[in-house]
């Protein structure tokens, strides 16, 4: 959707996903993350740093919460009744959930963040003025702000040679976040366009999914009925725009799918599959 379109159809644009959402979508990229397979190795996070030119901020700034990891592994110690090492940590990879009804979008004063026809929550760095409203309105805390210019410190010569040319290096005062590796999506779509064919399932692989040693992360298009992601979403009865109120009452142990903060009705595009624990 162009900016022109956004401004002319602002109320339509802000229509909630339960009313059909904003767009005629071309794709709706989505993920399924199997937490049972996640071993918390941080390979996804590392791959993201390499792919997306993420700045390395250093220990002090990390402690202040200024780290720039678009993909972070959250660690929870949930079996409180057990002692370490029997008490197992559980891990949850957390990145931008590319919400269908994103809370970050309406608060941006300059429409730097908006919804694309691909169902992605876009961030246009050139438009961003660094108001940080979006970050403060994000329930997932997955937007990261460039408080400093990290170019010199992160990539001292000749390290700048390893930067990915398909994505810009963000400078001071700009908000950034996971893009579902939009540069890879773009490359695949360009290729499909040149070959006059639709994008195939499994063609777009984001850096995190590619690096995951246990293949916990599956990426695909939920508009494509035959895609692996669609099938997983369907299998676990997770549906776009529908809040699974019945989830807690669910007795079926096979239905492990859930989306984080579903009750906020932000319609996230990432489905997590609960970890299976033995009942003790």
């Amino acid at each position: 959707m162009s900016l022109d379109n956004i401004l002319n159809h602002w109320s339509d644009y802000r229509k909630g996903s339960e009313e059909g959402g904003h767009h005629d979508y071309e794709h709706r990229w989505a993920m399924a993350i199997n937490l049972d397979l996640c071993i918390g190795c941080n390979a996804c996070s590392t791959a993201c740093y390499a792919e997306n030119n993420l700045a390395v901020v250093g220990k002090e700034k990390f402690e202040k919460g200024q780290a720039m990891h678009w993909m972070r592994i959250e660690r929870y110690w949930d079996q409180q009744e057990l002692e370490h090492p029997e008490q197992g940590a559980s891990f949850l990879p957390m990145m931008c959930q590319q919400c269908g009804a994103a809370t970050c979008e309406p608060v941006c004063p300059v429409a730097a963040t908006y919804h694309t026809p691909d169902g992605l929550n876009a961030q246009v760095y050139n438009r961003c003025i660094g108001s940080r409203y979006c970050s403060n309105n994000c329930p997932f805390r997955v937007r990261y702000f460039n408080f400093y210019s990290y170019y010199e410190s992160s990539w001292p010569e000749p390290m700048e040679q390893q930067l990915n040319p398909d994505i810009s290096v963000r400078d001071k005062g700009v908000m950034e976040k996971c893009t579902f590796c939009v540069q890879r999506i773009r490359t695949v779509k360009d290729k499909a366009f040149m070959e006059d064919r639709p994008v195939q399932d499994g063609e777009v692989v984001p850096a995190c999914a590619q690096a995951c040693p246990t293949s916990a992360i599956v990426f695909g298009d939920t508009m494509d009925e035959g895609s692996v992601v669609s099938k997983l979403w369907k299998k676990h009865q997770v549906e776009r725009g529908v809040y699974q109120k019945t989830k807690l009452a669910k007795k079926d142990a096979d239905l492990r799918g859930y989306r984080i903060f579903e009750e906020l009705n932000v319609d996230p595009s990432v489905m997590y599959l609960e970890r299976v624990r033995e009942d003790i």
Binding site: M1, S2, D4, N5, L120, V124, Y125, I167, R186
Partner: peptide, 18 residues
């Protein structure tokens, strides 16, 4: 791109901005 919308010229920011 606006003038050639009918030819399929995209108007999405993320088509060009990276």
């Amino acid at each position: 791109h606006i003038a050639n919308k009918d030819l399929g010229a995209p108007g999405d920011c993320w088509k060009c901005h990276k």
